[in-house]
Design a protein around this nucleic acid. Structure first.
Length: 426
RNA sequence: GGGGAGGUACCAGAGCGGUCAAAUGGGGCAGACUGUAAAUCUGUUGGCGCAGCCUUCGGAGGUUCGAAUCCUCCUCUCCCCA
């Protein structure tokens, strides 16, 4: 199965320039995707294009990850995007290094023929003078062409205006492609479907300026069945960095996907082959409550990103918290297990003296700890039967005292079904 | 530079002198149902010592018994014309 066929059955192709498939079967090709270096970690939103690179490399081609140090400073008008902050160079470099480490979990940087590579467009844009840019790049494309782009048209019609900077964005990104085309013989750019306009500006620029050939391939934007934004939770992005999103939370994110989404995601975010996926889908249809799809998806991607150990711990933690876990089993857990289960769960400290004296529920939840942001909110939730201590629902009038301690120093608080907090009593 | 419109809770958006802690929708959170799903239904969504009080409607003053609502100045945003 070639690269394009592979992506096709996985539902990862939204649009493709004619001739792309031929180019790839003709010779080994280099392709790139752009990544915004706005943080020192990737989040799962980045994963789609990284998986495209991964498949690309598996197919024997050369993947390039372009860190958008320069473009990130400008702000892509495609979709609504807020004004970006200028990153200073040390931050940029730091982010680039961190991202590289994470990319190594997906791409192979030590191959003889088609090693992955990382480049940063800041490196070639920073010395580029405005005049040279106008002469060497701006001259080759007409404003008419640029205005015909959907992303530009939308903003022009929207009544909100479009700054010159944003308008120019496509030229800068287009120049990246031209640069890589000349420097590294890169002939393909991939990205999300929202990037189509920007990518084609690049291919157009290459054609007009050098007469060379270049291609574009985009994947559909990842959506959720309920229309929500993919990869976001109440607490923000799902990061690959375990400091930002614990392996347990990471694992839970995938495990919690709806059935519809899981089937889509497993094709995109894992390398499981068609046969395996089809088997899992069949199993899901038969015994949906066992959620074979979600489990396989969560397992595969958690191991890839965090490793086998972390996966096993997350699995164990999930079983204790959601499975047969009761107050008794919690009391029976030894300290080491307890701590490893709750690694990555928000923690609070309360003094032993206060616990011995007894603390009222609203005080405990909103004052001694910040599990709730106000006592009113805590009370509300208590009334709604939404708070449990050590897996046992409690009411508004309950108090915290010594009998609630697990291993003499821990209290497990549960807000709703899925949010856990560990209070350490000292 | 001239003219116009407008800044209300997480967002969108009503309210235009008292009955406004502020309609409605979306989003969030929780409960029921379930499979840690989806859909649905219900509750809730400023703070507190919670039948009461305190702080909110861009900012600062003012009018009034009483202001999100009226007046003055400031400020920010957007649109149109030059």
């Amino acid at each position: 199965m070639n690269f394009v066929e592979e992506l096709r059955w996985r539902g990862m192709i939204h649009d493709m320039m004619p001739g792309t498939e031929e180019q790839l079967s003709k010779e080994h090709t280099a392709a790139y995707v752009g990544i915004d270096p706005t943080a020192d970690s990737l989040h799962i939103g980045h994963l789609v294009s990284i998986m495209m690179l991964k498949h690309f490399q598996i197919a024997g081609h050369k993947p390039i990850a372009l860190i958008g140090g320069a473009t990130g400073m400008i702000g892509d008008p495609s979709g609504k995007s807020e004004e970006r902050n200028l990153l200073d160079e040390p931050t940029l470099r730091h982010n680039q290094e961190c991202i590289k480490v994470q990319l190594q979990k997906f791409l192979d940087f030590n191959l003889e023929s088609n090693s992955a590579e990382i480049v940063n467009n800041y490196d070639w844009m920073k010395e580029f003078s405005f005049l040279s840019f106008l002469r060497d790049v701006g001259k080759h494309l007409t404003v008419n062409y640029m205005m015909a782009k959907d992303s530009v048209k939308k903003r022009l019609d929207g009544g909100n205006g479009l700054s010159f900077t944003e308008f120019t964005y496509q030229l800068v990104q287009g120049y990246d492609f031209l640069h890589l085309n000349q420097a590294k013989n890169c002939k393909l750019q991939m990205g999300g479907s929202d990037q189509w306009g920007n990518i084609t500006t690049g291919t157009e620029l290459i054609r007009r300026k050098t007469g060379g050939e270049a291609f574009a391939l985009t994947c559909p934007l990842i959506t959720k069945a309920d229309g929500g934004k993919f990869g976001k939770t109440e607490s923000g992005n799902i990061w690959l960095d375990p400091e930002k999103t614990s392996p347990y939370q990471f694992y839970q994110f995938w495990l919690n996907c709806s059935d519809v989404d899981a089937e889509k995601y497993i094709k995109i975010f894992t390398l499981l082959d068609k046969e395996t996926v089809e088997k899992l889908v069949a199993e899901q249809a038969e015994a949906a409550h066992l959620r074979p799809l979600q489990k396989a998806l969560a397992k595969d991607i958690t191991i890839r990103v965090h490793g086998e150990n972390e996966y096993n711990q997350s699995l164990e933690a999930s079983e204790i918290l959601f499975g047969k876990g009761t107050t008794e089993t919690l009391h029976k857990l030894n300290e080491a297990t307890l701590l490893s289960v709750f690694e990555g769960v928000p923690q609070f400290e309360v003094s032993i003296a206060e616990v011995e004296a007894g603390i009222s529920m609203p005080d405990f939840l909103a004052e001694k700890t910040t599990i709730f942001s106000s006592k009113g909110e805590a009370r509300r939730m208590l009334k709604e039967n939404g708070v449990a201590i050590n897996k046992e629902k409690v009411g508004e009038d309950a108090t915290i005292n010594k009998s609630n301690l697990l291993n003499n120093k821990y209290i497990l608080v549960q807000k709703g079904k899925k949010n856990y907090y560990l209070v350490i009593v000292k």
